[in-house]
C-alpha cells in the first residue's frame, strides 16, 4: 500500500490502517525520538498523538496534498510535540525543517492534543446518550461535529436527497439528544 492508498483508506474510516501504520513505524520513531528525549513513555504517547493528528486531518479531508512521505509527516509531528512538551523554544523548532512539513491545521491539532483533558462528567453523560441514538443520527452528528464535514459533504457521502434534508435531519437529532438527556434527569 502506498501513502495515497493509506490516506484514502483512513479517510473512509478504516482504523485498522492506523494500527498498522503505528506498529510499522513505532520502532523507527522510538529510535528517531531518542535524539530528543530519553523518556520512552513520553515518546510512545507522542507517537500515538501523531497518529491521531494524522487521522483527524485525514477525515477532515485536508490531507490530500502531503508535501512529504507519510512517515516523514508523522515523525515531524512527533518531533514537534516532543520539543513542545520539553518546553523548548518552539520558535527554534519552527525555523527547522518543520515549517516546511506542517501547516496551520497541524499546529492547531498538536496544540489541541497537548492540552487535552479527560471527559468532564457532563461530557461523559452526553456521550452516553449519544451512543444510544440511531445510526443515522450518530453518523450525521459525528460527521458534522467531529469530522468537521460540511452539510454538502454529508449529503454526498450518505446519499441524502438535498442539503435541506441533511440540515433538518441534523436538527432533529440534536433535539432527540436533548430530550433524552432531560428525560434522564427527571
Amino acid at each position: 500500500m502506498n501513502d495515497k492508498e493509506i490516506i484514502s483508506g483512513i479517510k473512509s474510516g478504516n482504523k485498522t490502517l492506523l494500527k498498522e501504520l503505528y506498529l510499522d513505524n513505532k520502532n523507527d520513531f522510538v529510535g528517531f525520538a531518542h535524539k530528543y528525549s530519553s523518556d520512552d513513555i513520553l515518546i510512545e504517547d507522542v507517537f500515538q498523538d501523531a497518529i491521531i493528528v494524522l487521522y483527524e486531518k485525514a477525515i477532515s479531508g485536508k490531507i490530500d496534498s502531503l508535501k512529504c512521505s507519510l512517515k516523514t509527516y508523522l515523525f515531524s509531528i512527533g518531533k514537534y510535540m516532543i520539543f513542545d512538551k520539553n518546553r523548548k523554544s518552539v520558535k527554534e523548532v519552527q525555523s527547522d525543517d518543520l515549517e516546511y512539513v506542517l501547516d496551520n491545521q497541524d499546529h492547531y491539532l498538536i496544540d489541541d492534543l497537548s492540552t487535552e483533558e479527560e471527559l468532564s462528567p457532563y461530557q461523559e453523560m452526553l456521550y452516553k446518550h449519544f451512543k444510544k441514538l440511531g445510526e443515522k443520527c450518530r453518523k450525521v452528528l459525528h460527521a458534522f461535529y467531529y469530522k468537521g464535514q460540511t452539510i454538502e459533504e454529508i449529503m454526498n457521502e450518505e446519499g441524502y436527497e438535498n442539503k435541506n434534508v441533511v440540515k433538518s435531519q441534523k436538527s432533529r437529532c440534536l433535539k432527540t439528544l436533548k430530550e433524552m438527556i432531560s428525560k434522564s434527569h427527571d
Binding site: 482504523k15 487521522y55 471527559l119 461530557q123
Partner: peptide, 14 residues
C-alpha cells in the same frame, strides 16, 4: 460540549 465529548471519546478510543 457535544463537539468536545465526541472528540475526546474518539481520541481515547484510538
Amino acid at each position: 460540549e457535544l463537539k468536545l465529548a465526541l472528540k475526546k471519546s474518539e481520541r481515547i478510543q484510538i
